[in-house]
């Protein structure tokens, strides 16, 4: 076990009210696995990632409860100084939009060596050599020359590869990738996903892959966590999520995406996501659920282990 989140609660204190973005979130990442975190817009995927790194913008955000154990220690109890050491060395992150995460006024080589030199000892020369190696590893064409380029001189796919090179340069034990290919075209996306997969096999880094694309999940992940409105509704191996989903929301999501050669009408989840300021009592999904019963409106469903490595939070499985 590499990372264990227990009952994590992150709120945003806004003018309209308190946004309960994460509500008692439980999640585990094992060593060497790729865990997919899926769910629709606003369900709390990015906030989960930011909470792990303690980068939730405050104010308005605040982690109000829970624990985040990383290699056995609770990150939420660490000094900010210690956290800074962990970020970028033991846990690193790639964001959706490479353009906004690279600094436009410095060459990419400068940015990569700055990162490595903050976390590792060594001369500037060594850092540059290391950067060139990283650029080779992520298959950037002409790595030595690329070091001297500015972000705007590179395409989106190349920028994202630099972000990956930067994220991996300190050999982190956990890489958090938040929609790493959403801004890219399919053929470039394929190159980047393939790269992440290959690097993971070589370095044995654990990956938390955040995406709303179930195709990417099927291609990349070992296990999957499905979120709805700030809560985990189901957690299981890739096979079980796709072949024997249990939560009505997971089933709904799978029915709503077209499959190849599909002739039948798409299944629809009625309505839209609930407010996080004033979420429904009981199960947050019940207003959209086609199998809800009376208890769903009143009580929050507990997390039930229905099989080894398959967890569901739904009253249908609560005996």
């Amino acid at each position: 076990m590499l990372l264990e989140i227990k009952e994590l609660e992150t709120h945003f204190f806004t003018y309209e009210g308190v946004v309960k973005a994460l509500n008692k979130l439980d999640l585990t990442i094992y060593k060497g696995e790729t865990l997919g975190l899926v769910g629709e817009t606003g369900c709390g995927k990015s906030v989960t990632a930011l909470s792990i790194l303690r980068l939730v913008p405050a104010p308005p955000g605040k982690i109000v409860g829970g624990k985040v154990f990383f290699e056995g220690e609770n990150l939420l109890e660490k000094e900010e100084k210690e956290m800074r050491k962990i970020r970028g060395s033991k846990i690193s992150m790639i964001f959706q939009n490479p353009t906004s995460s690279l600094n436009p006024v410095f060459t990419v080589g400068n940015q990569v060596t700055t990162v490595t030199r903050t976390h590792q000892k060594g001369s500037k020369r060594e850092a540059q050599k290391k950067a060139t190696e990283m650029f080779e590893l992520v298959r950037l064409p002409d790595p030595e020359r690329t070091l001297w380029k500015y972000p705007h001189e590179l395409s989106g796919g190349m920028q994202q590869r630099i972000m990956i090179a930067m994220a991996l340069s300190c050999e982190p034990s956990l890489l958090i990738a938040d929609e790493p290919t959403t801004a890219l075209d399919v053929t470039i996306q394929a190159q980047v996903l393939n790269l992440i997969k290959r690097l993971k096999e070589e370095t044995k880094t654990s990956i938390l892959l955040i995406t709303h694309n179930l195709g990417i999940v099927a291609k990349m992940c070992d296990r999957v966590v499905v979120m709805y409105a700030g809560e985990v509704v189901e957690e299981a191996s890739l096979n079980k999520i796709f072949e024997a989903p249990k939560h009505p929301y997971t089933m709904g999501l799978l029915g709503a995406i077209p499959k190849l050669n599909q002739k039948e009408k798409l299944e629809v989840i009625k309505g839209s996501v609930c407010s996080l300021i004033d979420p429904p009592q009981g199960c947050r999904f019940y207003p959209r659920c086609s199998s809800f019963t009376e208890i769903c409106q009143k009580e929050k469903p507990a997390r039930v282990k229905i099989e080894e490595d398959h967890f569901v939070s739904c009253h249908l499985y609560n005996f």
């Binding site: 064409p141 395409s155 796919g157 190349m158 075209d185 399919v186 053929t187 470039i188 996306q189 394929a190 190159q191 996903l193 393939n194 694309n213 179930l214 195709g215 990417i216 999940v217 099927a218 291609k219 890739l238 096979n239 796709f242 072949e243 799978l254 995406i257 499959k259 190849l260």
Partner: peptide, 25 residues
């Protein structure tokens, strides 16, 4: 051929041979 081969398909049974294109458009 390349475009179709790399679409991430939301199905775990359909593993296909991917054709990766070099470089950018």
């Amino acid at each position: 051929k390349a475009l179709i081969s790399v679409i991430p398909i939301p199905d775990i049974c359909q593993q296909r041979k991917e054709i990766f294109l070099e470089g950018d458009v």
